[in-house]
């Protein structure tokens, strides 16, 4: 993709400058991650007394890991599982909902569809904080705060997903195919589920991944909604431990090792699914 406009030979100086800057930038982006991976092998004391970017003589990664997973009755495992639950279920539901809505907006000329689309687009611009605080009071009124639902349900709404789905349905699902399926007697739901959704698969994967990371990284919503530590996602759990470092410095090491683990988890997911991060969808979107 990038190679296509590559001439055979570049002037040496520009090659050195360009790649030099890129390497420096790469070091910048990797630095905190390298630091936390090294720091996760140290004792709480060494954390503050040894050079940050190199290992000490007595690495204790295994001990730190064991501590993280046994602290507070093994609650760290629950936090990981909760994070996966919130992100996976929320993103899956969000993908289905936005795909159906985006597809319908793209393919059915119903009354008020442009208005609906504009309102949804406006939703992209509303800061999450404006939603989260009042949402607490609304869900409190129906006794949902403190439950898994209080985080899951709001996570299922992705205006950006609707936007991507509409753009992609327009581009990837030809009207002729829908017509043909209708003549064959298929209902609209069946056409969407069996035909259109398959043609939109790349967009659906993208919507799922973006929403997954958004929910995984979310802090404010669970902070506002949840009060029992066993329902916490990782982000909230780690800040809970972080707030106890004043009381007991041992928590510094728990926070560091826990952060290292959570960073490794998602970085692995992102590198593993690298080819699905099809940003050209968003590029198409910006032109649509």
């Amino acid at each position: 993709m990038v190679t296509r406009n590559q001439p055979i030979r570049q002037p040496l100086t520009s090659t050195v400058v360009v790649n030099g800057v890129l390497v420096v930038a790469a070091l910048y982006f990797l630095l905190p991650i390298l630091w936390v991976l090294v720091a996760a092998t140290k004792s709480p004391g060494e954390l503050f007394s040894s050079f940050g970017l190199w290992f000490t003589d007595s690495p204790q990664a295994w001990l730190n890991l064991t501590n993280v997973f046994t602290q507070d009755g093994g609650i760290f495992t629950s936090w990981i599982l909760n994070s996966i639950l919130y992100s996976a279920v929320g993103a899956l539901a969000a993908t289905i909902l936005s795909a159906a809505c985006g597809y319908a907006i793209a393919k059915f000329p119903f009354r008020g569809r442009e208005l609906l689309f504009s309102i949804v687009l406006g939703g992209v611009l509303v800061p999450a904080t404006v939603i989260a605080l009042p949402l607490y009071f609304l869900l409190n009124a129906v006794d949902l705060t403190g439950t898994y639902w209080s985080v899951l349900l709001p996570s299922m709404v992705s205006p950006f997903g609707v936007y991507l789905a509409r753009i992609h349905a327009n581009a990837a699902v030809p009207d002729e195919i829908i017509e043909a399926a209708r003549i064959d007697g298929a209902g609209d739901l069946r056409i969407f589920g069996a035909i259109a959704a398959r043609m939109m698969t790349p967009a659906l994967v993208t919507i799922f991944l973006f929403q997954f990371v958004t929910i995984w990284n979310n802090y404010l919503l669970p902070l506002v909604m949840l009060n029992e530590t066993k329902t916490f996602p990782l982000t909230l759990g780690l800040t809970l431990w972080n707030s106890q470092t004043q009381r007991d410095p041992m928590f510094y090491q728990l926070v560091v090792t826990g952060s290292a683990l959570s960073a490794v988890l998602l970085v692995a997911l992102m590198i593993g699914l690298q080819r699905f991060w099809k940003a050209d969808l968003t590029a198409g979107a910006t032109k649509g």
Binding site: W216, Y219, T239
Partner: peptide, 29 residues
């Protein structure tokens, strides 16, 4: 995107990695 860049794909992944680190964890680090 420039013609002079070597290994553009690797740089792209590396620069994108922090997006997967939650803001809270990034602030802690």
């Amino acid at each position: 995107d420039s013609a002079a860049a070597r290994f553009p794909r690797i740089f792209r992944v590396v620069f994108f990695i922090p997006y997967g680190v939650p803001g809270v964890i990034a602030a802690l680090l």
